[in-house]
Design a protein around this nucleic acid. Sequence first.
DNA 1: AATACGGGGGA
DNA 2: TCCCCAGTATT
Length: 370
Amino acid sequence: MLTGTKLRAFRKSLLAWFRQFQRDLPWRRDRDAYRVWLSEIMLQQTRVAAVIPYYERFLEHFPTVSALAEAPTEEVLRFWSGLGYYSRARNLQRAAQQIVAKHAGEFPEDQENALALPGIGAYTAAAILSIAFDQGHAVLDGNVARVLARLFAIRGDLREPARWQRLQRSADELLERKAPGDWNQAMMELGATICTPRAPQCLLCPVAKHCAARKQGIQEEIPEKRKKRTPVSVTLAAAVFVNPQGDTVLLPPPRTGSEKVGADHVPTLVSKMWHFPTIAVTGDPRTELERHLKSECALDKKRSSSGMLSLVALGRVRHSVTYRQITICAFRIPVAKLPLLDGAKAVALNELASVPISNLTRKIGRAALA
DNA sequence: AATACGGGGGA
DNA sequence: TCCCCAGTATT
């Protein structure tokens, strides 16, 4: 707990540090709500360095809320392709449509309406309203939580709801109400650049003298490292058909709701984006994929039954989705004509980016080209 | 309350 | 290679 003179000194030091040393980031050029919103959504669970190129391309293509609202969803996903957490992009566009319909195209300036938008929770609402409109909402994200936990030497799992609530109250008390936007960014900037998860740079910290963890020499022990779920290995077999023109076949994202996801959960593992025909396998990938293609895709109907399919093994592709470690055995399958799979689309193998795909599909495509 | 969701940067 | 994420929605 910081009060009185010490609280004022803490605020002054951190704010001065931020104003002098903040990184020059694309979304800090102005405080336009749409830009702040877009950056905050992209930054959820995603590093600054990864976001920057996406942010600039996305903004160039969808310069306004209404441009985003009116665009085909496939187009929005294409510009998100590779960034991950694709529900963020779908929610972003739904929110844009909601803003056009209910708020005359302007991002709502009140917390209730902001929170009502898809993809916007407590953190993002506080971030946007404080940065764009200088409203007094304190943000609490992973960085701020870590800073506060060290500042007050709070042990234990920070994600425990009770502990998270306590951290939120601390953030609220510390908030510099004269400059909430800069203040929130300063707290996050400190966590991102100085008060890092490992090897915090206390010697460079503008508020080191206020830090309880540093006083006790336990800054490296906080926060308690989260218990990780035991990894599960999954093996997939993927079919990369290639016709003489260099086109391949991709399957569409699974339709949400109406259609039941296959028992093998393959659509989930390929991110609800366009993907190569893929199955989960337990035994020999080639055998199982061959059998699957013949039965499910009616490939043999028009061909001689001797199985003209030749599967050329490509290198194994590794990929991970949260706790799942996926190994994909990809096979290049030369064909005269691409098979007509249900809902499938023909795409040039060297231009997969013409449709929204995940990095898993991108990796397989690269392996097939090499 | 627990779980799902992608991917990459830095040690 | 492992660890840690600039969280939100769903069940």
